[in-house]
Design a protein around this nucleic acid. Structure first.
Lengths: 345, 345
DNA sequence: AAAGCATGCTAAAACGTTTTAGTTGACGCT
DNA sequence: AGCGTCAACTAAAACGTTTTAGCATGCTTT
């Protein structure tokens, strides 16, 4: 625990400088293996572990990256973190975690902490609650020249690298699929208008309808970003429209999963009475047989990480918007294959 | 970025020592507010951020804790991490993340890295793949006096603090519930015998049956820890027994969720033909209407964190086994309420 | 007016490395 | 023998803090 390079030096009868040279494999030292061996042996025997604090203090950089996120309880966020951390392992970087608690002030404090710890760069996985103040955070990071990549929102794409899934295209895929299945009255259970993802999915929805020459009345769009009661009301509103939609494209699978009891109450069968396509492809989406747009959050984390090290290496790169590919995973909730979990009661 | 206490000192016309005293709120300095203000103002104007590396190097401790885990893709693990990190925020600790990649050698290397970074303590969320070598890891940590808490396995409870859910009791609750529902032929879809959780759930299963005077033939126990084909075969074996069990208690909800298509194939309705109770209470368990034992992983993370700081404060505490409470969440898969998601085809 | 005593500040050491510029001594060359 | 060269190693500075001991200064005491 408390064995330093000086201890090793003494034990091997050399200077700390030599210890450093040997242990870092500098070539200009003692190819006459005797010293090399003596140092190595002493280090092993004493259980010497170089102190990274001292090392980094001197180097001026830490090989540590900050990962700022709202909460690991969200599986999307956790998967992004997984990808990020996994890639960090390949690049020999450490990851310092920081929570947002969905509180702008707390987030600011956490980022301040990361900066004090001299992280080489930061990835921010945005949450809706702290999105409005994201600009302030970016300004701080910019001022102290700490590279940054934002994941899951592209509002600030002009100033900072952003990694988002190709939401617009994903939504188009989903809606095109429904249209191909013969649906004409398609509604959108949206996720509010705060996040760029929600807006882009809405845009994709509209675009797909327009391209197919289908109408897109305002009453067929409802929903908010919050899971729970408000969301169920929105779904109810859509399902009780005078001319009921035959299909619903939701901005989030979770909204649909929570809506299933409501469908049952209304006596609506999936996909016979109403077809469903969601977004995010959670693990439960497979269990429920929900057709969904997959956005591969693990890859998003990996890509964010790669971009961050790129930018650390060359800080003057132009900000880049990275849209990661999506794919439609077809299951039985839209009437293609035979349902088993989701079925008429 | 590169403004040091010396810069602030110069700007305020004082020494670095004074800067330190002022910024750390030492009382014995300059109640004559003039100096204090000058320093504070200079620090703000220059955007001074104390370098934690230097600070920690001197202090000898870092306020940073290592969190070792197999993968954040597992929602259990992610939730433990969430609880851990959340509590860390309260205690003013940072969390340094380390992956295992389910590879003992990689895990060893990651822990080595954490030690070089002089973390004050480590929490290890075990995974099955690295469980066999966990003892070696603990030995290393013990040798260099770094406090450690293990989450999700109690094999080494004699040497180290362990936080596990009360698996045995959870299993008993589940099985008692089935017995109370009139079931007599109850099978167990287990999760192998490697992890202590799996063994304890099995023990609880057996115990509940024995207490009720019910038989527990070996053929009614099957399953492995791996999700996928092998697990579906085990479920098939149970369901095709000459006298088919009327209820299944699974060591993991995921095993049941993956088994649903098989049930449909066999024409078995839930809960009419076979009742189900699982373990872990994932978010999808609610969507599927699965009765399940909830183990509150977030609390487990919180508790592990609290225990870790306790041990850091007093390193000589006796190792403690902490079993966190569980509760049975009753839904419709065991025949209590009317099913909506899970229903006859 | 001298001694004592707070008060307000600073000099310098310390933490554990890495790196730069040297220093030593052996050896080969003319 | 004198010179240069090279190999092998080391001394010391540097990174940015905190802390300890101590130094002025001015204010009470007697």
């Amino acid at each position: 625990m408390k064995v330093s390079s000086l201890d090793v030096a003494r034990a091997a009868g050399v200077s700390p400088a030599t210890v450093s040279l040997v242990l870092n494999g500098r070539t200009n030292v003692s190819l006459a293996t005797t010293t090399r061996q003596r140092v190595q042996e002493a280090a092993d025997r004493l259980g010497y572990r170089p102190n990274q604090l001292a090392r980094n203090l001197l180097r001026g950089c830490t090989g540590t990256l900050g990962l700022v996120l709202p909460s690991l309880a969200s599986s999307f966020v956790a998967q992004v973190a997984e990808g990020f951390q996994h890639e960090a392992g390949h690049t020999d970087c450490r990851v310092l975690l920081a929570h947002t608690r969905n509180d702008p002030a707390f987030e600011a404090g956490q980022i301040e902490l990361l900066l004090r710890h001299r992280v080489d760069g930061i990835v921010i996985v945005t949450g809706e609650a702290t999105l409005p103040t994201l600009g302030d955070r970016l300004a701080v990071l910019d001022r102290c020249r700490v590279p940054c990549v934002v994941v899951d929102d592209q509002t600030h794409a002009a100033q900072v690298d952003c990694v988002v899934s190709d939401d617009r295209h994903g939504a188009e895929l989903a809606v095109q699929h429904l249209i191909a299945g013969g649906h004409r009255r398609i509604a959108h259970l949206c996720a509010g208008k705060t996040t760029s993802s929600a807006r882009d999915r809405l845009a994709g929805f509209r675009n797909a309808l327009r391209s197919a020459g289908l109408p897109c009345p305002a009453e067929r769009i409802a929903g908010s970003s919050y899971i729970g009661a408000r969301n169920r009301e929105a779904l109810a509103r859509l399902l009780k429209l005078p001319s009921r939609p035959t299909a619903i494209f939701a901005a989030n699978d979770r909204h649909l999963a929570e809506g299933l009891p409501l469908l049952a109450e209304l006596g609506l069968r999936v996909p016979a009475d109403v077809a469903l396509v969601g977004y995010a492809n959670y693990d439960f989406s497979a269990y429920l047989g929900l057709t969904s747009v997959d956005q591969d959050p693990v890859a998003m984390g990996r890509i964010a990480m790669r971009r961050l090290v790129e930018r650390i290496a060359s800080p003057n790169l132009e900000p880049k918007l990275i849209q990661t590919p999506v794919k439609l995973v077809v299951r039985n909730s839209c009437g293609i294959s035979s349902p088993h979990q989701i079925s008429p009661p």
